[in-house]
Design a binder for these strands. Sequence first.
DNA 1: CTCGTTGACTAACGCGCGTTAGTTGGGTGG
DNA 2: CCACCCAACTAACGCGCGTTAGTCAACGAG
Lengths: 348, 348
Amino acid sequence: MRASGKSRNVTMSDVARHARVSRTAVSFVLAGRSDTSVSPQTRDRILDAVRDLGYRPNAGARALAAQRSGLFGLITEIVTAPFAVDVIKGAQERAWEDRKFLLIASSEDRADMAEAAVEKLLEQRVEGLLYAATWHRAVQVPKAAGEVPTVLVNCFDAEGRFPSVVPDEIGGGRRATERLLAAGHERIGFINLDPGIPAAVGRLEGYRQALTDAGIHPDPDLVISGHATADSGYDAAGRLLDLPDRPTALFCGNDRMAMGAYDAVRERALRIPEDIAIVGFDNQELIAAYLRPALTTVALPFEEMGRTAVSLLGSLIAAGDQGKTDGQPIDTKVTIDCPLLERSSVRP
Amino acid sequence: MRASGKSRNVTMSDVARHARVSRTAVSFVLAGRSDTSVSPQTRDRILDAVRDLGYRPNAGARALAAQRSGLFGLITEIVTAPFAVDVIKGAQERAWEDRKFLLIASSEDRADMAEAAVEKLLEQRVEGLLYAATWHRAVQVPKAAGEVPTVLVNCFDAEGRFPSVVPDEIGGGRRATERLLAAGHERIGFINLDPGIPAAVGRLEGYRQALTDAGIHPDPDLVISGHATADSGYDAAGRLLDLPDRPTALFCGNDRMAMGAYDAVRERALRIPEDIAIVGFDNQELIAAYLRPALTTVALPFEEMGRTAVSLLGSLIAAGDQGKTDGQPIDTKVTIDCPLLERSSVRP
DNA sequence: CTCGTTGACTAACGCGCGTTAGTTGGGTGG
DNA sequence: CCACCCAACTAACGCGCGTTAGTCAACGAG
């Protein structure tokens, strides 16, 4: 039973006094240092005192003395895309494994807020920085980020100054297409995202590769670009379905478009997956899992990207401690697999 | 232009030396203290030095000396849930206004993780704690949370030891029902969530109040309980629609159920909103905004709850500083309005 | 000429801890 | 019996900063 109310926090000195040893001894025991010896009895006395007094180390003081905060900073544009927060989860878990704590700041998708966020995080003396985007693209990273090791997540630096972790869009496109091919489809429509963005470029490339590898010549008429909305998916799907020689399967650039495609298919009294198979992209749970029939889709590996980014950051920091960074930009671009999630919109 | 590379961080002493004053003077100027005087010239010299050297205060050291970290802790069950993002956003913004920083930890919906999270946050010497749940209910808060001011968000403590901020479920239920009444509907079906949970109890109560106030006697046959899934909504809607004297409107306990209800309506070749009006609850953007027609729904005010909770926490801490807390449990329960979002599933 | 007084500063302590450089007292080997 | 060593500790410095208790020169009043 601890003291209640405004009683000052228990410090290491309190523990030392209670255990009748020096504060140094307490520090050594708690740090688990094996190079300096402490007798088992003393050790136990100290640990007992810790328990009795309810001692809790002061992370700030520790950081000050040890010259390392144990904190990582994560900057994300929380506002726009709810689903990208899986990055936080993965990063959080991985950081926890290394006994690091994640400081999360929001850039609100505004450059000045991003700068402010970096500044605040550096004041907290984070050991490294993660910068995450809601959708895969090139970003402008605040300059100050260069002062500590930094890893980009789901985005990349046009100037290649920072290493980044991004989804394997091409592989995802392949995987989706291959799944449809495996189900026997040969005329596969592709409703792409706005042209130019990495997701659109990569997924289209994967689509083409898969078809070519299967000995099918990609039919340009079966590829349409849309705008990442349900309405756009509805329109595009309608056009493909009204083709004279219509496709038997649709690969949609994302799940929202797939959602619109469902409506277009239904309006034509066609059945999913019997008459038209559909594969989405992104795995937005709230859509994909609850559509009827549930949507087979390719997942963006946000959580895994978060984990990987923290791992990478950890090794960057370790390398930096040993002075291995020689000022050269580290042009690493780690791509993470996009797994296919089987649901019910493609026949087995 | 700052020194690059591994150069040690600039400290206050560096600034003092560069400005040819004592460190104390620098501290005073940066703290903006008006009780002790510093001549304008000196002030400028110091501020110039700060800029020249790129001085950035060390938050940890400051916390240690000032005995207050400027940190709030936020524990959420699942960081990745869309709701959590909004709570975080609101809390983040509000905290930022007070120049506080939010430490976000996840309990992964496990009691032991929650304890660990509280422990870790207390090690960081957070000045207060927010504890947020994914769905409105009573929760078990780790005991250690009692050591600092704590506010519950979207949940409440059965023992009433902590103040909490929750959505106004009754008001939301009323609002949804009143909207349907205003559109001329009199037979309004209600597909409720699992009975017993606060959301189900409150929304039903609001539904009844609205009907009664409108002089309509609630018909028990029009109320069905489901399980918060699209399938369940589909089944329940089907049963209501197959009633001899079927309702002309459906109020669904949440948006997923509404999603299922859409399918049931479509199967019967009925149109939304012409034949059947539908109102949802929760405003899960990815569903509500992208259903066709877009779903009119009642929003859970997560962002506002986050903001309010931080405000409340701030005042609790301020009160504690002045010793106004006398150990009594503060049984506050702030309810936040649930606004109706007009879309297209109810005719104007 | 002395004594406050005030404006403009500074010396120095302590916050809680990691860490280095010791200091003991009880063996061992020669 | 002495030199040496080692296990088992402890003293004390410094991390970067807020804050209290000064110091010191200038200046006006008595």
